[in-house]
Amino acid sequence: MRKMRAAFAIAALLVLSACVKPPLYSWGRYEDLIYQMYIKPGDADPVTQTAKLREDIEKANVESKPVPPGVHAHLAYLYYQQGDLGAAKQEFLIEKKLFPESAPFVDGVLERMERKSEQQP
């Protein structure tokens, strides 16, 4: 009886797993960090978020899984908040390279950033 039950359980698991496709992207903690920065901002200041996203990106690279849309742009914004405009620019450009759909936005942001840094030498 017990063996039969186990067999059923395994069969059910197999049927279920056949329907679940692997995700397109390695999500890491991107969405959880967005949740935290709004709802529990003390847990997700820009420095903490940057460290966690860097780890997630590293992990995705190791697993050769693509990083989701928005992650590099989000990271760019975190660097911008910390005053590191060089790293911000670099991350925005990675977002644009991975996702050309972001080009109009990224180009506009980079242009505004450049103008701003010229104003405050």
């Binding site: 397109l24 920065m37 928005g70 992650v71 989000h74």
Partner: peptide, 16 residues
């Protein structure tokens, strides 16, 4: 973001 991107769209970074 996640469901929209997993459905095959580019999703702009919501917090940015």
């Amino acid at each position: 973001s996640r469901p929209l991107a997993e459905a095959g769209y580019y999703v702009f970074p919501v917090a940015v």
